[in-house]
Simulated assay, not measured.
Amino acid sequence: MRRSGNRFSVNAMSAISTRGRMHFMAFAESFTVEVMCRFLERLAGHFDRKVHLVVDTHSAHRSKKVRNWLAARSDDVELYFLPPYSSEPNPDGLVNADLEHGLPKQHRTRDQTELAAENRRFFRRRQRQPHIVRGCFGGPHVRCVL
């Protein structure tokens, strides 16, 4: 099969709850402070109470702009940081692994738009399967990947 040789990617971020709720955002650009603030804004808009979000120590999570955003919305969102190293995988990392394993292997996307659509389809499917998302919190003996 002839291929174009073009390389493209799509980034995604998600927030999951122990009840199996999932919110996500797929984006083509790099993960930056602006993208993080946009995600936090969207996440805060979905709830009528404070969101407690556990994040890793990525520089965008710790940036001055994000800290300022959080200070201005301290009643809406609070961040908690994971330690820099943990032997246990975090639940959202398991969701990311689930995404990588769950995308169709036989179908090759032709462009970035098609890849973003595949990612969104996967996350929407998982939103309708809260039992799988909850399984990501079950500890090392539970697999959330189907």
Rank of each mutant, 00 (worst) to 15 (best):
F27G: 00
S87Y: 11
S30P: 00
M36P: 06
R143T: 15
V145D: 09
W69V: 05
S17I: 03
N6H: 13
S17A: 00
S63K: 09
L40K: 03
E29I: 12
A97C: 07
L103K: 08
R3V: 15
S63I: 14
L146S: 12
L70F: 01
Q112K: 13
H46W: 01
W69L: 11
A116I: 14
T109E: 12
P83C: 01
S59H: 14
T18V: 04
L53M: 05
R3K: 13
F47C: 01
A116E: 12
V55K: 00
L79G: 03
K64R: 02
F24I: 07
R38M: 09
F122N: 11
E118P: 02
T113P: 14
H58D: 00
G20N: 03
P104N: 02
S59V: 07
H101G: 14
N68D: 05
R21M: 11
E114N: 03
W69R: 04
F31I: 03
L79T: 00
D92G: 04
S59T: 15
F39C: 03
M22L: 14
G138D: 03
V10Q: 00
V35Q: 04
A12C: 09
T32E: 09
F31M: 05
R121G: 10
R2Q: 12
L79I: 00
S86K: 02
V95M: 04
R21A: 13
T57M: 08
R21E: 12
F47L: 09
G5F: 06
F27Q: 06
C144I: 02
R125A: 14
A97F: 14
G5M: 00
L146Y: 09
Q106W: 13
R120K: 13
D111Y: 15
R2G: 14
D98R: 07
H58R: 13
A117T: 10
P130I: 08
Y85R: 10
K50T: 00
V66K: 11
S4C: 07
M36N: 06
